[in-house]
Amino acid sequence: MRIIKYLFLLFLLSLVAITVFIATQKGNFTIEGNKIIHSPKATVFNYVNDYKNWQNFCSWISTNPTIKTSFSPITFGKGSTLNWESPSNTGNLKTLYTKGNDSIVQKMEFNDASFDVFLSFKDTLGGTKVSWKSNGKMDFMMKVNTFLTGGTQNSLTKRFDKSLANLDKTLNFENNTFNVKINGIVKKLETFYLREAFTSKISDITRNANVVFPKIETFCKQNNIVLNGKPFIIYHTYDTIHNLTKVSFCIPIKEQIFTSQGSEILSGKLTAFDALKVSLTGNYTYKDKALKEATTYSTTHNIKTGSTFTHLEIFTRGQNETKSISKWLTEIYFPLQPKIIPKTFRPIVKDSLNTATAPIIKEDKSEF
């Protein structure tokens, strides 16, 4: 019995010694992981910037079936948040700011610990180099966990590396699965809409759409305006040489309204028109392939397009409808040039009883 008591006492002393050792260890840490993601930089940035996608690649979320996630109303960009909760841990991420398609700065709260998180994206041979860096201070339980798993660098770096591997695998499949379909000549029906128009770099269209569309939708909610379809973009000009386009970001509405003069958000009416329709299923970054196939089809079938604007894109199915990029659907309409009807000349016969001419009636025209 005495030996057992000594062993038990020795165990308690060892436990106290280990506890003191762990508690007195430095809590500050810096970890970093990086990996080449085999996808274009803009695609990788936009995917990571939206918290709805994190449950697909973030290792401490995707591998835990008990975790419940929730998001802020806007899930991307500055001020957006991701929250998770499970029996073993809780935490949240908040985006403090972003810079172009180059970097994201976040703040993470994990149980009682707090971390600064930095993500950078750089073009490189074969894709995009993503660097994921974090620094912060550990609480006691995190010190215990890292002591048992071989240190902070070992345990947390593994999570980063696993997450980046998941990101590469997910985007590799999703981004390489797409299809372009030529639907043929269709009739695009009349549409009332609200819009914000400006000149943009073609490469910035996705980023600008993520800002402008929610802005117009919020305006509609605040003014009880009924929406009537999916967001769309009208490309008035499309200069690929200078990477510039004059665009209108549009939200369709049920009834025509009139906005006040000087407002950033304007009302408009798109009159019905005949168009060549092309459907792109998959990542929006393959839009150039859809435009190229449309041009080839138009040339082969002698179809003249681009009379009033170059083309129109409707985001029929996107990130709000499905997490799978390969299932996104963008419908593209190219307005047809009106057919030229040869003029016919008829002799003018004067009516001696009625020399008055018929009045000329002018029709209202849309700005498009």
Rank of each mutant, 00 (worst) to 15 (best):
Q261V: 14
T237Q: 01
G282T: 01
R317I: 03
E321K: 07
T295S: 07
G306E: 02
Q261N: 15
K254F: 11
T316F: 12
V247E: 08
T240N: 09
K292Y: 13
G262P: 02
S248L: 11
L266H: 13
S263V: 01
K327E: 02
G262T: 01
S279N: 09
T330C: 09
G282Y: 02
T299P: 04
K323D: 13
S307R: 03
T330L: 13
E255K: 11
N243M: 02
K287D: 15
H301E: 13
N283I: 07
K289L: 01
T296S: 08
C250L: 10
P252E: 08
K269L: 02
G282R: 01
D239N: 12
S267E: 08
E331V: 15
D239G: 05
D239K: 00
T271Q: 12
S307M: 06
S267R: 09
A275M: 02
A290R: 06
I257K: 14
K277Q: 15
K323F: 12
V278Y: 08
T271E: 13
T245G: 08
A275L: 06
D274T: 12
G262W: 03
V247M: 10
G318E: 00
A294F: 06
L291R: 04
I303F: 02
H311Q: 00
K304D: 08
E331S: 12
E264F: 14
G268K: 02
I303S: 05
F273W: 09
T308M: 11
W328P: 02
E313G: 01
L280A: 05
T295G: 11
I257H: 13
D288M: 10
H311R: 06
L266P: 06
E331F: 10
L266R: 15
R317W: 03
Y286E: 05
G282K: 00
T299I: 14
S298N: 01
T330E: 12
E293F: 13
T296H: 08
I332D: 03
K323G: 10
E255I: 07
K292I: 08
K277V: 11
L266A: 14
D288E: 12
E264A: 13
D239F: 02
T237E: 02
T271G: 10
D239H: 06
K292D: 08
